[in-house]
Design a binder for these strands. Structure first.
Lengths: 329, 329
DNA sequence: CTGAAAGCGCTTACAG
DNA sequence: CTGAAAGCGCTTACAG
């Protein structure tokens, strides 16, 4: 039913070997005249290549598999954009599988879906896999690289923003702008990434001789609700004059809830975010934030998959602070 | 290098035929004892199926291909969630390819990537393909279905919100709540979807004996900037007392820019959006909006791909109005 | 420059 | 219940 190289071969009066060589552009292995015949036949017949067959025999692949966090914050989209951009320039295909938020079953399923085919390698975006899934991934033998996730082990390669340093820098920024009682909201204290950020935050406090007070840390999941809840807790049990937020959504939650309580931003309360998606600039006041280079992470990740790297490879991508109006000048 | 059924066959002392049958759970075609041996060997050897080979020989596939709009508005994520959910319940895989915003080259590339493998069918999310690409898609012979896109032709199957009716309903809502000079911003007048919305909007005005004034319509691309620009135009050339927005981002742009001009929302200006993503409720005031059932669209789309349907198939998914505080009571 | 042949990893009638 | 054999659509040494 479907057109194959056999059909082309017949139509063009050559062998399938020749068809294959022409279609793959293996220069100098065929006469121009032959090539013309073949291309003409292929076009006429409406030939479309069966990549499954090719991959089966070559055991190679031009496809990058992406396993992606599917949640409300959309930073992952920026990373995927970068991956696609790099892929396009190198004639690579990209297939994406969403892995939900923190569901090990979905994660496993996603890994299976991608690795059932001989992909060039795997990029895991915004997810820290459950231990058993990380192990499963490693067993497949495919090259893999985490993007926007951090690991302690030196046997898991990753590309990310330096979480410790960015949290440190953000906290220092708040201190430099007159804040002393600084809360941290919407960051998971389960993930290694979260732990690094918390460590950076605490280190900056210490460095400025600020005593961390209980309840300043309000862990969460980068969600809007986390921000709302944090302010509620702060109003009850402690008082802060600034909040460093895990995501723009969290910052938005903090902002709205703070207003509910009659707090002026940035006077009564400074707000800073660590996402730096587009949203930050659309909120009024614009949210001061750590702007991560998500696109670059994607590009870099796709680039790495075309090289070879060892398991202790990791790279921190530079970030910058974009000053908005949610913090004092 | 990789473990194949041959290896398992050797290890378990059976033929590859038997291994295949056991691994595929073709009941009653093998002895329980044999099955045990095979499974044990597979486990021991760390066997992973090569789906390429399977698809090559069966010419079938359990994979749904999704071609997805990659832009800032994240309604498409809700649709994909629905697709994945349905797929999971039916043991289907989902591979996603992003197709950029309106770039025909990326679109073509995306179609190629997906159709180079024998997918079960294609779901195209949030995109109206360029004519040549639609044609190309049809030539591939794969079943396909558009989600959140509308077509005039009765030869393109789709699932969407009724764009005419939802715009009509939204406009009527604004009229019912005291507004008479109603602008429409951030909607593309190039796409069929946009045209349907504009038609619904105009029809509602007419029905209420409101004379449409030039400049009320400020087309765009669902972006934040569209909202900003629209307000600027309104301030200059016409005056509106409400704006119906193509997306939550556009609504946010309208809101912020309106405030710049000292306009009170909802007193001086009513704002309504046609997206209904999470963002609408996080903005303050909460944006009154048409809430589309994106998740349901995804589920329904994935379901359809498992049935057979003709090219004149289409379905409108119900929507509802969620009243916020950006419109008068 | 070109073709015949083997083989990638699987499935499935067919025969027993 | 099980196996030998053919074949899915392609690529690639090998020989000429």
């Amino acid at each position: 039913m479907n057109v194959t190289i056999k059909d082309i071969a017949k139509q063009a009066n050559v062998s399938t070997s020749t068809v294959s060589r022409v279609l793959n552009g293996q220069d100098n292995f065929y006469a121009t005249k032959t090539a013309k015949k073949v291309h003409k036949a292929a076009l006429k017949l409406g030939y479309r290549k069966n990549t499954n067959a090719t991959e089966l025999v070559t055991k190679k692949s031009n496809t990058i598999g992406v396993i992606m966090l599917a949640n409300k914050t959309n930073f992952a989209n920026g990373i995927v954009d970068g991956i696609q951009d790099e892929a396009l320039h190198n004639k690579l295909n990209v297939i994406i599988v969403h892995a939900g938020e923190n569901d090990p079953v979905l994660q496993k399923k996603a890994i299976q879906t991608v690795t059932e085919r001989p992909v060039k390698g795997l990029l895991i975006v915004g997810i820290e896999l459950a231990d058993e899934n990380l192990q499963y991934l490693q067993q497949t033998g495919f090259p893999y690289l985490f993007i926007s996730a951090e690991f302690s082990q030196d046997n898991v390669p990753f590309i990310t923003t330096d979480n410790f340093y960015s949290a440190y820098t953000a906290t220092q920024f708040l201190v430099d702008h007159g804040y002393r009682k600084i809360g941290l909201a919407g960051i998971s204290d389960q993930s290694f990434m979260g732990k690094r950020r918390i460590a950076g935050y605490l280190d900056a406090l210490k460095h400025n001789k600020i005593n961390y007070e209980k309840n300043w840390l309000q862990p969460g999941n980068f969600s809007y609700q986390d921000g709302v809840v944090a302010i509620k807790k702060y109003q009850k049990n402690s008082n802060v004059d600034a909040v460093l937020c895990g995501s723009d959504y969290t910052a938005l939650g903090v902002l709205n809830e703070a207003r509910e309580h009659g707090l002026e931003v940035p006077g009564d309360l400074g707000i800073m975010s660590m996402d730096g998606t587009e949203l930050a600039q659309y909120i009024s006041p614009e949210i001061t934030s750590i702007e991560q280079s998500f696109f670059d992470m994607g590009v870099k990740g796709a680039k790495m998959l075309q090289k070879s790297f060892t398991n202790d490879f990791y790279q921190y991508i530079p970030f910058k602070i974009v000053e908005g109006n949610s913090t004092l000048k």
